[in-house]
């Protein structure tokens, strides 16, 4: 299993670098879809099937379609930049180095004594069974019930973004329904 995880991580890194190097936007978007699938696979290995599910459907499905439809409206070649990539590379290396230095103090991967697993008390997973009358999926229980306010907010954000997209992209004069309506 570690071998599978290792292969997925290597492919993930390779895909990200390929996307960064690529000039053809159409191919880059396809690679973004592959990247989403690979990260969904890693999430599945990391015991988060709900998130893996969402990432596969959203990242590889909807995001790819939306980007391709944008591409159809804008043109698919990226112009070769005249700027030198040296300064961005330097910035990225310094930032990455600082972040990696920061990780040296982080709690270790998968260790049951990590702070995240101790606070709040992990018994809330078992206790949710009594609160929820035996709802097996704890993720759903937390999402919809314990953190219900938060999810209401997130749903409203999705609605707001949808309204904003309509407001930006809808054409009033050529809108077919306005001619149909009395």
């Amino acid at each position: 299993m570690n071998l599978i995880a290792f292969a997925i991580l290597a492919l993930l890194a390779a895909t990200a670098v390929t996307v960064a190097r690529m000039r053809d936007l159409w191919a880059a978007i396809m690679f973004t879809g592959i990247y989403s699938f690979l990260s969904a696979s890693w999430m599945l290995i990391l015991d988060a099937p709900d998130v893996a599910f969402t990432e596969a459907a959203v990242g590889a499905g909807i995001a790819t379609v939306l980007m391709l439809s944008t591409l159809a409206l804008t043109g698919k070649e990226e112009r070769a930049t005249t700027r030198s990539p040296l300064i961005p590379l330097l910035v990225v290396t310094v930032t990455g180095g600082a972040l990696i230095y920061g990780t040296l103090d982080m709690p270790h991967f998968g260790d049951p004594s990590d702070p995240i697993h101790l606070y709040p008390n992990p018994s809330f997973v078992e206790k949710s069974q009594e609160d929820m009358h035996g709802l097996p999926n704890v993720v759903t229980a937390i999402l919809a019930s314990y953190r219900g306010y938060d999810t209401l907010g997130e749903t409203t954000v999705v609605l707001t973004a949808g309204i904003a997209v309509i407001l930006i992209l809808r054409r009033d004069e050529s809108h077919p329904e306005q001619q149909e309506s009395p």
């Binding site: 599910f53 379609v65 709802l135 097996p136 919809a144």
Partner: peptide, 20 residues
């Protein structure tokens, strides 16, 4: 979604991808 992986967010995206 209450019993296995899934829920409103995932189902919504899958249904929409069918329509798309």
């Amino acid at each position: 979604g209450d019993f296995g992986p899934g829920g409103g967010f995932q189902a919504g995206v899958i249904l929409a991808s069918g329509l798309i």
